[in-house]
Computed example of a mutant assay.
Amino acid sequence: MLCRNNYHVVGNGRIRSLGTAAEAAQAMADGSVRAVVGAIPFDVRERAALTAPETLEVHDGPWRPAPVTGAPRIRIDAMEPSLEAHRRRVADAVATLAASAGGLQKVVLARSVLLRAEEPLAAWDLASALRSADPRGSLFVTDLSPAGRAAALVGASPEVLVRKVGTRVSAQPLAGSAPRSTDAAVDRARGRALAASAKDLAEHRYVVAAIADALAPLCHRLDVPDRPELMTTPAMWHLGTPISGELRSHDLSALDVALAVHPTPAICGTPTVRARDHILATEGDRGFYSGAVGWARSGRDGGDGEWMVAIRCAEVSDDGLTARAWAGGGIVADSDPDAELVETQAKLATVLRALGVDPAADPTTDLSPT
């Protein structure tokens, strides 16, 4: 299921699983499947969690879940890596970037928390809690079993990778972030500071330029604003740029367009291959965190669809007793490791608070900004 403010989509049943994103795109291109739903991993060379559904239902309006009652008690069981280890990773990346004249310009590093529930947690209950916490936000729930993972991926991503309606394509990359504050004056000041931050504006330009370069060959018209907008979620300020264009071909699907731009510098870095290799060497396999979740019809059926970047998310085990949540940040040569750590904590708050876990209540995670 993918939920946006004006519609939600549900894929029901499974005609077949598709091993990789490339296989899924080819199956739609040759007409062997008419639609695809699911998740693309961060590293598209890895196994995807994509299926051809028996039915694809598109409903007007957002998903409106019933309130969750009797939620289980959940605690942070482990951090991977530790807070100090993540600081060191960021500091090492800053040193690498500073020494990489003309080479690596940005890399996105993430950390995760393992959560343990006293009683089973249902993935759909987490989705309901996320929706209740931010009724205006986007939401996704998808089964990861086609990729051999006994889990579901649930999240409230604020970032549109691509949306395609007819020949119109759009994207809204986010890069450059600041934690929200409960103090209204402090909160407004943080937004203004982000909008004026040379470091964050430079980081954002990497992302916009990469997406524009990827979309330009596919479009006969592409509109890219000169400056980003300020956007908010309950937890974060973001710099975002709404990009839109008209595709040259009617035969492309939303999945084709998503694969043309994924992974963006917003969740990987730039140049893409060097940043990806740095991430894999530093973090190991990310799985589906910072991949994409969505749906697409085949080009023969119009190719419409939408893919959200898989952030502000958790992988919930089938038995409901464990979940893993991630958060990351873009690192450039003048990044501050302590500030980057605080940013990941603020981003983790989206999932943690939906689960009733207060990051500031645990002394090992007492980094939440006021």
Results as ranks from 00 to 15, higher is better:
Ala196Met: 11
Ala196Ser: 13
Ala198Trp: 03
Ala198Asp: 13
Lys199His: 09
Leu201Pro: 01
Leu201Glu: 03
Ala202Val: 07
Glu203Phe: 06
Glu203Lys: 05
His204Lys: 01
His204Cys: 04
His204Trp: 03
His204Pro: 02
Ala209Thr: 15
Ala209Gly: 03
Ile211Tyr: 01
Ile211Thr: 05
Asp213Gly: 01
Ala214Arg: 09
Ala214Cys: 08
Pro217Lys: 00
Cys219Thr: 10
His220Cys: 03
Arg221Ala: 15
Arg221Asn: 02
Leu222Ser: 01
Asp223Trp: 09
Asp223Val: 11
Pro225Val: 01
Pro225Ile: 01
Pro225His: 05
Pro225Tyr: 00
Asp226Trp: 01
Asp226Glu: 12
Asp226Tyr: 00
Asp226Leu: 06
Asp226Ile: 01
Pro228His: 13
Glu229Arg: 13
Leu230Val: 11
Leu230Cys: 08
Met231Lys: 14
Met231Cys: 13
Thr233Met: 07
Pro234Asp: 11
Ala235Thr: 15
Ala235Trp: 07
Met236Ile: 13
Met236Phe: 13
His238Glu: 11
His238Tyr: 13
Leu239Lys: 07
Gly240Thr: 07
Gly240His: 07
Ile243Pro: 05
Gly245Leu: 13
Gly245Tyr: 09
Glu246Ala: 08
Glu246Thr: 14
Arg248Tyr: 12
Ser249Ala: 11
His250Ile: 04
Leu252Trp: 07
Leu252Ala: 08
Ser253Glu: 11
Ser253Tyr: 11
Leu255Gln: 11
Leu255Met: 10
Asp256Arg: 05
Val257Pro: 01
Val257Gln: 06
Leu259Asn: 08
Leu259Glu: 07
Leu259Arg: 09
Ala260Tyr: 05
Val261Trp: 02
Val261Gly: 07
Val261Ser: 09
